[in-house]
Amino acid sequence: MASGHIAEINIRQEGQHVIVEAIGDWVIDAITPIYSEIERVESEYDAGRVVIDLSRLDQIDTTGAFLLGRTVYQCSSPNADWHFRGEHASARRLIGEILERVIDCEPDAPEARYGFVRAFERIGAGLDAFVQETIETFGFFGRTLTTGFSLLLRPHRFRWTPTVYVMEEAGVNALPIVVVLTFFIGAVVAFMGANLLETFGASVFTVELVGIAVLREFGVLITAIMLAGRSDSAFTAAIGSMKMQQEIDAMRVLGLDPYEALVVPRVIACVFMAPLLTFGAMMAGIFGGMMVSWATLDISPGFFITRMHETIDWSHFWVGMSKAPVFGLVIAIIGCKQGMQVGGDVESLGRRVTASVVQSIFMVIVIDAIFAMMYLELDI
């Protein structure tokens, strides 16, 4: 008899039966040499004829039980008593447990990469994912609202320090890049307008073009896109990294609500800082248009400001400012929601950050179009 962590197998025929005799210790450290013999039994003999002899078996673990069970698994009744011979304290029970949990999986059918059916499958899967994402986002928004209302009833629980910190990071620190970008946007609008209107002898209307475009659309839109690309991704990455390191689970264990500590401060910070950033973007865009008008059309800054004051109604300014808090709310909700859905790996974090930025910019464009149609119907 073999001893010491050595596994052996003896295969012989007795009449119509094939005897598979397990010898020694069938444990994970010792069964590698007999793996090929098990495969040979599977391929050469009918499982209905195999009898497992346990009389010379010493130790066995789940790996050894799995290998022995493979010899009779294809039989219609692998746990039948006549499949086993000899006595062992645990082998028969362990093999039975393994056989009950073995699942035969059919090989995956090769997916057609082309064709109408595959195209419609992908479209359907995309629509289903879109619907599920929309439902989850509205659910997250509702949970954030209820948390915010509960904080109104219990203001002592509101976290001022993280809110002010996020205001600085997402608002004040983003002001330079927003101002520079909208300055050049205003300059480009003025330059294109000057070239086009000069052909009609109406270059003075460049003032109205710059003022209305920047105040009504470009100021708030560029601000929202920059918030989505800069701050929204930071929200997702910060909350997602905490989710990966199980810090959010630890907060719940300590009795802290992650929505109170992480989501509400970011939402409030974005809602309040978006109008301030938008105001700065408007001023920078108008200044850029004024500089180009001065350089190309000899429209002095004094005349530019005076004409804006006389011809452009204040409603254009308030239209742009009214969109800012809505954009800030949507951007913060999407960024925090994607952060909360990060899994336990870095790949998941990367996917969620990408989804956060893409969804935020998409929603900003859609909501801006809705605002444009609404104000057009209201004649504002």
Rank of each mutant, 00 (worst) to 15 (best):
G4C: 05
I9M: 13
I9L: 14
I19L: 13
V20M: 12
I34Q: 10
I38R: 00
S43D: 08
S43L: 03
G48M: 08
L54C: 13
L57N: 11
Q59D: 13
I60A: 06
Y73G: 03
S76D: 15
P78V: 07
R85W: 10
H88W: 09
I95Q: 01
R101K: 10
R101G: 05
P110F: 00
P110N: 03
Y114L: 09
F116H: 02
F116N: 07
E133M: 06
G139I: 06
F141N: 01
G148T: 14
L152Y: 07
L152R: 07
P155Q: 03
H156C: 06
R159K: 15
W160V: 14
P162A: 09
V164Y: 12
E168P: 00
V178L: 05
G186H: 06
F191G: 08
M192H: 13
N195Q: 15
L196F: 15
T206Q: 08
A213Q: 02
L215E: 04
R216E: 08
G219H: 03
A224S: 10
A228L: 01
R230A: 05
R230F: 02
D232G: 15
A238G: 04
S241P: 08
Q246C: 06
M251R: 11
A269Q: 08
A269D: 11
A269C: 13
F272E: 00
A274I: 06
M283D: 01
W294K: 10
E310A: 15
S322E: 10
Q341W: 01
V353S: 06
I361E: 02
D368K: 08
D368Q: 08
A369Y: 02
F371W: 05
